[in-house]
Lab assay of single mutants.
Amino acid sequence: TFVEFNGKKVEYPTPEAAEKAAKKLAKKLNLKVTKKNGNYKLE
């Protein structure tokens, strides 16, 4: 499962880990999380 932000793509071993990381990053970077095709994107 990938988390995409600032043009970077980071892969996580589980969807749970990706979701957790996405939410944490979104909060830190003041972005919102969108889920697309099972992957997460911060914008």
Rank of each mutant, 00 (worst) to 15 (best):
E19A: 10
V3P: 00
F2H: 06
K8H: 13
G7H: 06
K32N: 08
E11G: 11
K20H: 12
L42V: 15
K24C: 15
K36H: 14
V10Y: 15
K28L: 14
A18P: 00
K8D: 06
A17V: 06
K23T: 12
A18G: 04
K9T: 10
E19T: 05
K8G: 06
G7N: 08
T14F: 05
G7S: 05
P15W: 10
L25V: 05
L31E: 02
E4Q: 06
N37P: 02
K20Y: 10
L42R: 01
F2L: 07
T34D: 05
K41S: 12
K35N: 08
K23C: 14
K8R: 13
V3G: 00
L31K: 02
K41H: 15
L29I: 04
E43Y: 13
K41F: 15
K35C: 14
A17R: 07
E16M: 10
N30K: 10
K23W: 12
K24Q: 13
A22T: 04
V3H: 00
N39F: 09
K24D: 13
N39A: 09
G7K: 05
A22M: 04
F2Y: 13
L42M: 04
Y40L: 09
E16Q: 12
E19V: 06
T1S: 12
N37W: 04
E11D: 07
V3A: 00
K8C: 15
K32W: 05
K28Y: 12
P15M: 11
V3N: 01
K23L: 14
K36T: 14
P15I: 09
P13R: 10
K9I: 13
L29E: 04
Y40S: 02
L25C: 11
A18F: 01
N6A: 10
N37H: 07
F5M: 07
E4T: 06
T34S: 08
E19Y: 15
A22P: 01
G38W: 01
K20L: 11
E11A: 12
Y40G: 02
K28Q: 12
K35H: 10
K27Q: 11
F2N: 04
K20W: 09
K28H: 13
L42S: 02
L31G: 02
V33Q: 02
L25D: 01
T34R: 07
E16P: 03
K23E: 11
N6V: 06
K20D: 10
A21Y: 07
E19N: 07
N37G: 11
T14G: 05
E4R: 01
A22H: 01
K23A: 11
T34N: 08
Y12M: 02
T14C: 06
K24W: 15
